[in-house]
Each structure stands twice: as C-alpha cells, then as structure tokens.
Amino acid sequence: MREENGIQEGTRAREGEGIELPASTTAPLYFALGFALLGVSLVTSELFALAGAMLAVWGGIRWWGEVLPRERETFVPAQAEAERAPEVVPAAGHATPRAGGEDRHRARLPLEYHPYGAGLRAGVAGGLAMAVVAGVHGLIVQGSPWHAFNAFAALVLPLFGAAPPSDMTSFHGVVVLSAGIIHVLLSLGIGLVYASVLPMLPGHPRIWGGVVAPLAWTGAGFVCIELLEPSAVQSINWLIFILLQIVFGLTAGEVISRSEPVRTLQSFPLATRAGFEVGDEEEGL
C-alpha cells in the first residue's frame, strides 16, 4: 500500500465520518486450513488430502476475489466524540533537566572529571597519612615504627617468591624499601582510580572515598589474601586494616574534592565541539 496525498491507499478517510478498511474475510482461514490438512494427509489418509485441496482452492479463489478486480473494503464509522482519545495537551510544569542546567540531561556522562594530577596528589597524601597512622600504631602497640613495614612486607613478598622478614620489629633496609615502593605504587594507582570514579558517583566524594571504598577494598583484600596466602588471613589485624583504609580514603577523598573539576567536551556547545567557536572555557588560553 502506497501513500496518496498523505493518506495510505486502501485506508481512505472521509473526514469526520469514518475510514474504509480491508473487509474481514474467511479466505485466509480456509486457505491455511487447506494447507494444514494437505500436510497432515501425509500421516493420515487421502481423504485429508482431498479435503485440504478443496479448502485450499476454495480459500484461494475467495482470496483472489477479495482483492481483484478491486479490493473489498468495509466502511468503519468514526468513533463518537466521547469515545475518542482527547487531544494531547501540554503537561503542567516543565521538564526537569538533570544536573540543573541547559540540556545536560541529554549529554553523555560524566560531564566533568577531576584532573589526573589530583588523583596522584590524593594517592600521595592518602598513602602518607596511612603510613603515619600505621607507624604510630606500631610504635604504640608493638614498640617499633617498622612493624607496619615488616607486616606489609610479610604479606606481599611471599607472592613474589621472596622470604618475609624474620624479625618484625627491627629495621630491614631492603624490606622497608620494597614495601615502601609497593605502597607508593598502590597509593598512586588507587588515587588515580578515585579521581576517575568519584565524580561519576552521586553524593559527596568523602563518603564514597572514606567509607564505601575502604569497606569494599577490605572485602576484596580479604578474599584475595585468602586465595593467595591463606595463612596470612589469621595474622592480619583486620580492624586496623579497615582503619588504615578509611584514613587513606578520607584523605584521598578530601584532596580530590578540593581539586577544580574539568568539564568534558560533552558539556560544551556543539559549535565549540566542532571547532567553529572558541568556548568560554578556552578564551583564556
């Protein structure tokens, strides 16, 4: 069916009165039943084949008559006014754009991110705060500031095939160096992850960084350590472990939340994105 003057052929409308539509018919039913009986005759009897052929021919002829020489149509009167769907009217109030501004609900997320430098700074600050608290805790409880380094090394070094330190309270240069390097790398990495992920989460970065992430990280750490070094699970003080994660998370979250977020390209007007105009953000460059 093609369109003629905006109205589909075969469904012509008489404005206000009704529509002509294809008339109902039994032809397809007979035609289909004939086909089905012809098929079933393979496993029943010739009588089914005979009945099927007759019905299929009868249905086919009727079908032919439905469309030639002209399509048989039925006139369907228009619904009474009371039955019709009311016209769609403008909704009360306005659509609420997300994030409070100019079509942002249509932009891709995230609309802004924290610079990677903030992530690195957060990692350094968080790692430092964590080390200080661990050192103070070791000094008070174990009588040595190196206990935390040795305990960390005892956890990590066996994974690389190296022997853990024998004495947990003495200073071991290689142990402190290797534990320190691993701690710094982990801190920087997690700081970068925080900077990337925190802007995409609702609410305040301190909550996610200081509470949710440490708990999730502790859970993940527990599972990994149990898998990789089951004996170490017993030797870890999980309370202080969680406390240290929270110290890291709060510090890193604070550093990140203080950084100036950078708007992503999606928040710029199309002309700016296409390079035809210089956006406000770039005027100072």
Binding site: G6, I7, Q8, T11, A13, E15, G18, I19, L21, V76, A78, Q79, E83, R84, A85, V88
Partner: peptide, 14 residues
Amino acid sequence: STSSPPPAYNFLSL
C-alpha cells in the same frame, strides 16, 4: 495518542 482500545482504523487522521 489513540483511545484504549484503539478503533479499527487506529488514527482518524494520520
């Protein structure tokens, strides 16, 4: 935009 259930012709005007 049409009534529930819709009329046989769906839309009086397209």
